[in-house]
Amino acid sequence: MLSHLELRHLFESAFLPTECKCTVSSDRTISIQLINPRTRKVEVSRSAVPISGLTSSRAIANLVAELKEELRIWPIAHQDLRHNRR
């Protein structure tokens, strides 16, 4: 099993140049925030991900892929919300 520092490094490296903040909690979960480097706003956030489910490279890669997809569609989803407010 990877250490908490290794997990953080993997996630933070996977999303460059987007800033990635990882927080490991005492309940053995990890929270991940992806922050737009220009606006400094959190664009994607996933909290309370059980570390016990991140024991293989495939599990880690799947989570990274999910978060990258959320990050990819974030501008489209939020553009729709802005148009609906008008």
Rank of each mutant, 00 (worst) to 15 (best):
L67N: 04
S26L: 09
M1E: 08
A61I: 02
F11D: 00
N84A: 14
V44Y: 01
E66G: 06
I73F: 10
L2I: 02
E12C: 08
I60W: 04
S13H: 08
R38Q: 13
L81F: 09
K68A: 14
V24K: 00
H4C: 07
S56M: 06
E19I: 10
R40V: 04
R58N: 09
R40L: 10
G53V: 02
A14R: 04
R8N: 04
I51E: 01
E43G: 11
K68C: 12
L34Y: 04
R58E: 10
S45E: 14
E43V: 11
T55S: 12
I73D: 05
W74Q: 13
R72P: 03
L2T: 00
L16K: 15
L54K: 01
F15A: 14
N36D: 15
E70A: 13
R82W: 10
G53I: 01
L81D: 12
E19D: 10
S52T: 08
P50W: 01
S25L: 08
I32G: 02
L10A: 06
R38V: 12
A48I: 02
V49S: 02
P17R: 05
L5H: 12
I76C: 07
E12L: 05
D80R: 15
T29F: 05
A14V: 02
L81P: 01
R86P: 02
G53C: 06
I73T: 14
C22I: 00
E6S: 12
I76L: 12
T29P: 03
C20M: 03
L54R: 00
S25W: 06
R82D: 09
H83W: 13
K68Y: 07
L34D: 02
C20E: 01
T29D: 05
I73M: 08
L54T: 01
R40H: 10
E43T: 10
M1Y: 10
L63M: 09
R28V: 03
T55Y: 04
C22R: 05
H83N: 11
A77V: 13
N84G: 04
I51D: 02
S13G: 04
C22Y: 03
Q33E: 13
K41N: 12
